[in-house]
C-alpha cells in the first residue's frame, strides 16, 4: 500500500472547501457575499465539493503503480503525484488554502464608506466624459442594472426564496405607481434600486416630494459641512460589482456624523447641481442614528417570468 502525500493534501483542501460552503449556507452568511440569486448554483457547488472530496479520499490509498490511469493528452497536472512535494507545489497548495483560512477566520465585513469613496460616486459624474454613452454615469448605471435584471433564468425553474428580491410584474407596477402617488416615497430595500433609478433619471419630477430612507453616511472631498451622502450598496452579483446608490443630503448637523454611521432619514427632495451635473438632493427634516441593518445591501428587482 502506498500513500501519496499530495492526495492527502488535496483531500483536506477539498474537505475544507466543502465545509466552507456548508457553513456559508447553514449560517446564511452566503448573503453577505453574493446576491441571493446565486444560492442555488452555490448549493450545487457545495454538492460537487462533497462528491469530489469523497472520491479523493479513495485516491489516497492507491497502489503506486496506478493501474488504469489514462492520460489521453500530455496533461501537465500535478496528478502524477510522485509524492515529491516541491516548494512550488507547497506554494500552490497554500494559495488554494488561503481563502479558506481567511474565510473561516474573519467574519464577513460590510462594505464601508472607504470602498464607496473608491468607487467615486460623484467623481465619476464630474469627470466630464466627452461621450456619456461610453462611460455611463452612476445614475444611468443603476437604472440599466435594474432593468437588465428584470428577467432571470432561474425564476422559471425555482421557487423564490424569502430573501430573494423576486416580484411579479404587477407588484413591480404597483410599487412604481406608489412612487408617483404616495405621500412619502419610502425607499424600502426591495424597491430601492428601481426608485433610485427613476428619481435620478428625472429629478425635476420629484421636487418637493417627501422621502424616507436609511443608509450609511459617506462623504467626499469638496463637500461643505452641511452635506453628506446617504447611500446603500447595490449588489448585482458579488461584492466586487457593488455600486453605490446614494443621495446627496443637506442639513446643518451633517458634520456631526462620521462616515459609516447608519441613519434613518426623512426629508424633502430637491434638485441641485454638482460640478455642472443636475442631481437630486434631500433636504433632511428629521433623522436618527440606527444600527446597521441585518441586510445592509440592496439587490436589483427580479420579476418572475409570466
Amino acid at each position: 500500500m502506498y500513500v501519496d502525500f499530495q492526495h492527502i493534501i488535496k483531500t483536506i483542501i477539498l474537505g475544507i472547501f466543502a465545509s466552507f460552503f456548508i457553513m456559508l449556507h447553514s449560517s446564511g452568511d452566503i448573503l453577505k457575499y453574493v446576491n441571493p440569486k446565486y444560492e442555488y448554483i452555490s448549493k450545487i457547488a457545495m454538492v460537487i465539493f462533497i462528491c469530489l472530496f469523497l472520491i479523493q479520499i479513495f485516491r489516497i490509498l492507491q497502489k503506486k503503480k496506478r493501474a488504469g490511469h489514462v492520460c489521453t493528452s500530455g496533461c501537465d497536472h500535478d496528478h502524477h503525484g510522485n509524492g515529491v512535494l516541491s516548494l512550488r507545489k507547497v506554494f500552490g497548495y497554500s494559495i488554494i488554502a488561503f481563502p479558506m483560512v481567511t474565510g473561516f477566520t474573519f467574519e464577513p465585513a460590510t462594505l464601508n464608506a472607504k470602498i464607496a469613496g473608491n468607487k467615486g460616486l460623484f467623481a465619476q459624474i464630474s469627470k466630464g466624459n466627452e461621450d456619456p454613452s461610453e462611460k455611463p454615469s452612476l445614475t444611468e448605471n443603476a437604472e440599466s442594472l435594474t432593468e437588465k435584471e428584470n428577467i432571470d433564468i432561474y425564476s422559471e425553474e425555482y421557487n423564490p426564496i424569502p430573501n430573494n428580491n423576486y416580484m411579479s410584474e404587477e407588484e413591480l407596477d404597483d410599487k412604481k405607481k406608489l412612487l408617483q402617488a404616495s405621500e412619502t416615497i419610502e425607499m424600502r430595500e426591495d424597491i430601492f434600486g428601481s426608485y433610485y433609478g427613476s428619481i435620478n433619471k428625472a429629478p425635476q419630477d420629484y421636487i418637493g416630494r417627501k422621502i424616507k430612507m436609511s443608509g450609511f453616511v459617506f462623504k467626499e472631498e469638496g463637500f461643505t459641512s452641511d452635506q453628506l451622502v446617504l447611500s446603500r450598496f447595490m449588489i448585482t452579483h458579488c461584492l466586487a460589482d457593488a455600486s453605490v446608490l446614494g443621495f446627496l443630503t443637506q442639513f446643518e448637523e451633517a458634520s456631526i456624523f462620521e462616515e459609516d454611521t447608519w441613519l434613518e432619514m426623512e426629508g424633502v427632495l430637491d434638485v441641485t447641481t454638482y460640478d455642472g451635473y443636475e442631481m437630486p438632493i434631500i433636504k433632511a427634516t428629521s433623522w436618527k442614528v440606527i444600527d446597521e441593518p441585518a441586510e445592509p445591501y440592496v439587490f436589483p428587482v427580479i420579476t418572475l417570468l409570466q
Binding site: V34, I41, S42, A45, P99, A109, K114, C238
Partner: peptide, 27 residues
C-alpha cells in the same frame, strides 16, 4: 485591519461566486 477585512470580504465574494462555474468547467 479594517481595510484587510474589506479586502478579504470582496476577495471571498469573487471566489464564492466564481467557484461553481470553475467546478462545472473542470467537470
Amino acid at each position: 485591519m479594517e481595510a484587510f477585512q474589506q479586502l478579504n470580504t470582496i476577495f471571498l465574494s469573487i471566489i464564492i461566486e466564481a467557484i461553481p462555474f470553475v467546478l462545472i468547467g473542470v467537470l
